[in-house]
């Protein structure tokens, strides 16, 4: 059993050449801090996934790579998007813990210790960063983001959706396993939650500098829609259960009403003033309910098949026995403010 702990960072890169040197300086500071304090914790690699950049990010990274041998650059053949790029990075990592962070300094490496400590102290497998302030400093943009996450959380029944953030610390084996089962339409964070329920978050300061400077978000309405579709398609449709429930209720009501109408017809014929309506309503309730129930069950099965095809595992084994030692190490190396 190893008594040292390794960290890999993964950064998908699309259009952030101007921020990359600063990010690498900060990562290097973090790395050197661990080395200078003879920590058992090591930043062994920073993996940058170049997602078919539209700027000179690749050149910047190649020149930085010459100075820092712990930088790995992986070039994707075309633009696949943030989640596939992050998954590719996870699959190239070797660390006991993997940190994903954006290229644009929205996710400052100084918080890695805090997120990692949160995982170690609570023995959780994933810790998401959660912003103290409005990330984009735009009321509409921030509210939209919140409403979007809440709606998706309701539709999919995944309560962790509200935590989802691309600044995350993940136990290495889980990051690699989730990435291994990811398809092109799988939402990476949903795949991660197939492997663990031990998910928590830490509140830190996140500022989308790029959005604030240019007022240009990476997301259009169309891409937001695609994002939602990907999240829903990767999850089990919770709302299908409401369809099944409505179907059952409607079916049962039709049975009760049918029995009542039959009794009324036999024993109190005079009670029925307008004839024909009750049988019509009962028929609609009966067949409507039956159809809803059948379609709901069918869709639930389809949903199960889809998730199975998407790679949701039957089980997954993990070793958390070193968490206490990691916690002690972090407490030794970092001050209370950093944790």
């Amino acid at each position: 059993m190893t008594s040292s702990f390794s960290i890999s960072t993964v950064t998908p890169v699309y259009n952030g050449a101007q921020y990359l040197p600063d990010l690498i300086v900060e990562l290097n500071n973090f790395r050197n801090y661990l080395i200078n304090n003879s920590s058992k914790l090591r930043l062994i690699e920073s993996i940058f996934i170049v997602d078919d950049c539209i700027d000179n990010s690749l050149e910047v990274l190649e020149s930085q790579k010459k100075e820092h041998d712990w930088i790995k650059v992986i070039m994707l053949s075309r633009n696949f998007g943030q989640h596939p790029a992050t998954a590719a990075g996870f699959l190239h990592s070797s660390g006991d813990w993997v940190v994903s962070l954006d290229e644009d300094m929205q996710h400052h490496p100084k918080y890695i210790s805090k997120l990692l400590y949160s995982c170690a102290s609570k023995s959780s497998d994933i810790c998401y960063a959660n912003s103290i302030d409005a990330i984009h400093n735009s009321f509409i943009r921030d509210k939209l983001s919140l409403v979007f996450k809440k709606s998706i959380g309701f539709l999919t029944g995944n309560k962790n959706v509200r935590y989802f953030n691309s600044y995350r610390v993940i136990r290495g084996p889980i990051a690699r396993a989730a990435s291994a089962v990811c398809r092109h339409e799988t939402y990476l964070d949903v795949a991660l939650s197939w492997f663990t329920r031990r998910i928590n978050f830490e509140t830190i300061s996140l500022v989308d500098q790029r959005y604030q400077e240019s007022q240009n978000s990476g997301y259009s309405i169309f891409s937001l829609f695609k994002h939602a579709k990907r999240m829903i398609m990767s999850s089990k449709f919770k709302f299908l259960r409401s369809g099944i429930f409505i179907g059952i209720v409607s079916f049962l009501i039709s049975i009760v009403l049918g029995f009542y109408s039959l009794m009324a017809r036999i024993f109190h014929f005079e009670l029925i003033e307008i004839r024909g309506w009750s049988s019509l309503v009962i028929s609609i309730l009966f067949f409507g309910g039956l159809i809803s129930l059948m379609v709901g069950l069918l869709l639930e099965s389809v949903s199960d098949i889809l998730i199975s095809i998407n790679g949701k595992p039957t089980f997954y084994a993990i070793d958390r026995s070193m968490d206490e030692e990691l916690k002690i190490e972090l407490e030794t190396i970092f001050s209370d403010e950093d944790l």
Partner: peptide, 12 residues
């Protein structure tokens, strides 16, 4: 130069 876990192999 590409680390691959047994789980990843299994999935592949």
């Amino acid at each position: 130069g590409i680390p691959i876990s047994i789980f990843q192999l299994k999935a592949m």
